[in-house]
């Protein structure tokens, strides 16, 4: 699956620090968008690309509402990985940041390699998540095309029941069940019974 070019978002209220981090990312060939506040970041229209957020914890707009910011992101089903950077990294603060879902917690002045490694890792994680999400949504699309009866039969087949029992349970003939089952395999693009069972598992597990 082809995804657009990854992008790094930087949120820091200190324009000099913000510009320097953006410059550092650009110098290693990463696409960057910088914001002066979390509000700006949330209001922005972000491209659908693998990305991560580099967030300065200390700055005034974020500090009192780090949790609030995190909540707003998750309300919007926005699961962008966050790398926190701070001027004074104490343990309670880093613990809190990790609770907010931080991927990394770095102290200023940030070591270049640490930051770039963290960014790469975050983008990789976001990319994987996006691939998974895309897989799931195409799976859901295929599932939607099944008729009610076909869905019933898919569930029972995945439950390991033989055709005979399914037929008895649904009050159908064994031949009819076989036909429905063939349709299910075809519509779900399942290569084997094992494949179908896996798909059923993915559809029913809430991710």
């Amino acid at each position: 699956m082809n995804l657009p070019e990854p992008i790094v978002f930087i949120v820091d209220d200190d324009s000099e620090v913000r510009a320097s981090l953006a410059n550092l990312c650009r110098s290693v060939g990463l696409k960057v968008e910088a914001f002066a506040s979390t509000e700006e970041f949330i209001a922005s229209d972000r491209p659908d690309a693998p990305s991560c957020l580099v967030l300065d914890v200390r700055f005034p707009a974020a500090e009192p509402s780090g949790l609030e910011f995190q909540r707003r992101l998750s309300d919007r089903n926005d699961r962008v990985p966050i790398i926190f950077i701070t001027g004074h990294g104490d343990v309670p603060m880093s613990v809190q940041a990790m609770k907010y879902g931080a991927l990394e917690f770095l102290t200023k002045p940030v070591r270049e390699q640490e930051l770039l490694d963290a960014i790469k890792q975050a983008i990789e994680r976001d990319r994987e998540r996006r691939v998974q999400d895309a897989d799931l949504s195409s799976l859901q699309g295929r599932y939607k095309r099944l008729t009610g009866r076909e869905r019933q039969i898919m569930r029972l087949v995945s439950g390991g029941l033989p055709n005979k029992q399914i037929a008895a349970q649904l009050g159908l003939s064994e031949v009819t069940v076989k036909v429905h089952r063939g349709h299910v395999m075809q519509k779900m693009e399942a290569k084997s019974l094992a494949d179908l069972v896996r798909m059923n598992g993915q559809l029913s597990s809430p991710t």
Binding site: E16, V17, N23, S27, G87, V110
Partner: peptide
């Protein structure tokens, strides 16, 4: 602590920019 923060900000910027300069020259 407040002095440390005040000094740390430009220091962070200086380090990041200097590293960026090295990267640009290595292109």
């Amino acid at each position: 602590a407040s002095i440390a923060h005040e000094v740390n900000q430009p220091l962070t910027a200086a380090v990041a920019n200097a590293q960026a300069a090295l990267n640009w020259l290595n292109h």
